[in-house]
């Protein structure tokens, strides 16, 4: 079973590519065939993080039909079991991917067969980014303890939710729904998104139920990166609590990762941090994070296997 883990987080510079790089190396060392895909289309740099400054192929080759399958754009890395689909050498307008091409990429990624596929998702909350995020039920949000980053995380989570609603209702009906929601709840105390969901449940009860189910199935995780000593270590846990309580979306806290100046050195050296500085607190935290990802994935496949056996019986 292939586990697809999108890793994103709204704001740039919070350490998404850095974490993907280290997680990939760690998983590969555990003997898992791991593929990292750089879908930060306009600003790719995953290849730099893992020390491949000049990748020969990139995802653009697939988008521009230079090659037929996505598999052909995969390149090997210095680490055994670790593979990369780079976003380097992309054409300059690749960030504005048309809908049809995006669907093609998403489908192609789902067809790939690896133990783990890690998607490095760029900053922002545009539809392209959110659709990459919604490729699987799993997902990791990366944030730093700064309000700018926290703000973007909440925005991203809401945007994902909004996209779910949006996808379920045809364009014309959706416009009507928004108008009704805006007029009816104008003076009311509830926020726009909740109003929309409430109205949808009322006007399309079946779709409302489907939405509820799909929201319950989402299994997101949060990592708090660059935690300095004076920051509140419970920040991430409390953020998850708020999202669970007031958006009804399940987000589990995966742990803090300590701030370390040496991360900068490792990135400059284009080397993997957890192997360059294995005995730092930050490395310990990252390995904990990797372990959590692995055990959650194992749990998922166990549940799936159980379900499959049940079906067969």
């Amino acid at each position: 079973m292939t586990h697809i883990w999108p890793i994103g987080g709204g704001k740039g510079g919070s350490g998404k590519s850095f974490l993907v790089g280290n997680l990939g190396v760690w998983l590969a060392e555990q003997g898992k065939r791991t593929l990292m895909v750089d879908v930060d289309l306009g600003a790719a740099n995953l290849h730099t993080i893992i020390g491949i400054p000049y990748p020969k192929k990139s995802i653009s080759d697939f988008i521009n039909k230079k090659v037929k399958t996505l598999e052909e754009t995969v390149i090997e890395t210095q680490t055994a079991n670790l593979f990369l689909i780079s976003g380097a050498k992309n054409s300059l307008d690749v960030a504005n991917l048309p809908y049809a091409q995006k669907l093609k990429v998403l489908r192609a990624i789902k067809k790939l067969s690896y133990d783990f596929i890690l998607l490095d998702i760029g900053a922002g909350t545009s539809f392209n980014i959110i659709d990459f995020f919604m490729i699987s039920d799993l997902g990791v949000f990366v944030t730093t303890p700064e309000p700018t980053s926290i703000e973007n995380i909440y925005r991203l989570i809401r945007a994902v939710y909004f996209r779910k609603v949006r996808k379920m209702i045809p364009q014309r009906d959706f416009k009507k729904l928004v108008e009704t929601a805006l007029t009816r709840y104008e003076d009311s105390s509830i926020d726009y998104l909740s109003a929309l969901v409430l109205l949808m449940k009322e006007q399309y009860p079946q779709k409302g139920k489907a939405l509820e189910r799909s929201v319950q199935n989402m299994n997101f995780h949060l990592v708090l990166n660059q935690l300095r000593k004076k920051d509140n270590p419970r920040l991430g846990m409390l953020m998850c609590k708020i999202v669970n309580k007031y958006l009804g979306i399940k987000v589990e806290f995966l742990g803090n990762i300590s701030y370390d100046d040496r991360v900068h050195d490792a990135v400059c050296e284009k080397d993997s941090f957890i192997y360059r500085y294995p005995y730092t607190q930050a490395s310990l935290d990252i390995r904990n994070f990797c372990n959590n990802i692995l055990s959650i994935s194992n749990l998922k496949s166990n549940v799936r296997n159980d379900a499959l056996t049940e079906q067969r019986l």
Binding site: P147, I150, D191, N232, L235, K241, I242
Partner: peptide, 24 residues
């Protein structure tokens, strides 16, 4: 704990609620 989460200067719920919502 709630004050830590919802207080005016709390980083946890920053931008999650509007000013009016937070006050209520």
């Amino acid at each position: 704990m709630a004050l830590q989460m919802y207080g005016n200067s709390s980083p946890v719920s920053y931008s999650f609620f509007s000013k009016d919502e937070r006050a209520r």
